[in-house]
Design a protein around this nucleic acid. Structure first.
Length: 255
DNA sequence: ATGTCGCTCGAGGAGCGA
């Protein structure tokens, strides 16, 4: 099984990038974030043309998530937690006995802001839902834009980012609480020492200077973590014309 | 470097979010 997560930062603009990657890699499932379209505007026809279907949950302008899968696959949508607002940041399915959760964690703006508190509250709701759900099905993959760099090795300039948004202690604690429910960080499990990033700011010529953070993750429950065979970051998508500010992260599992 | 993108509203460019 080949799966991927990608913050596309507008499905309208990134549709050609996405369909070309899917068409060449033929993944079983792709979780995307920041689609920025209402459901009536989701470009389902372009995906059907290359043999894929999708679940999507979007809103105007901001947020929005989707799970794209092969038409021939049998997937069932799972109901998520009740978040305290209607922002579209969560979508989950069951596929081959595995719960696959796509999340777009709030950015948080700056440490101590209202948006930071909202991020922490959102993460707690998510953590509690995952803990409960794991009791029903221990096979789970949580993937998406976490907006958290888990460790210093995931940051290009540790001093500059120390205690800043995406790197603060409370955010990292929240990430580790989810890990400690029984997950492994798939990328880190196969690349223990690599300093690799999944997001580079559009400003400051960030990508060319490699001023990045690793904030997009695939967490695999320990019940199936032995099946992880390959994990990588598709930087080629960040090198294209009109790129997303995120690269895609993929994983291959025996399943 | 308040840096660059993508979006909305609404007809040009300001304002927001990331």
């Amino acid at each position: 099984m080949k799966i991927a997560t990608w913050n596309v930062n507008s499905i309208r603009v990134r549709l050609p990038h996405l369909t070309s990657w899917i068409d060449s890699q033929l993944p079983d499932l792709v979780a995307i974030q920041e689609t920025k379209v209402e459901d009536c505007d989701f470009p389902i026809a372009a995906l059907e043309k290359i043999g894929y279907a999708a679940f999507f949950s979007g809103q105007k302008s901001y947020n929005g998530v989707a799970i794209i899968y092969k038409k021939s696959s049998d997937l069932k949508k799972i109901e998520g937690p009740h978040f305290p607002d209607s922002q579209k940041r969560f979508l989950a399915v069951n596929f081959l006995g595995i719960d696959l959760i796509n999340i777009y964690v709030p950015n948080g703006n700056s440490v101590g802001s209202d948006k930071y508190q909202y991020k922490m509250d959102w993460l707690l709701v998510l953590q509690n839902w995952i803990a409960k759900r794991l009791k029903e099905n221990k096979n789970m993959i949580v993937m998406g834009d976490f907006n958290i760099a888990p460790e210093d090795i995931d940051v290009h300039d540790v001093d500059m980012w120390k205690d800043k948004i995406l790197c603060s202690k409370l955010e990292r604690d929240a990430f580790n609480k989810i890990i400690n429910l029984g997950f492994c960080d798939a990328y880190r499990s196969l690349h223990m020492k690599d300093k690799s990033f999944t997001w580079w700011d559009y400003r400051l010529n960030g990508f060319k200077r490699n001023l990045g953070l690793r904030i997009d993750h695939i967490l695999v429950s320990t019940s199936i973590s032995n099946s992880i065979k390959n994990v990588g970051i598709e930087k080629s998508l960040r090198e294209m014309d009109r790129p997303s500010d995120h690269a895609l992260v993929f994983a291959e599992l025996d399943a």
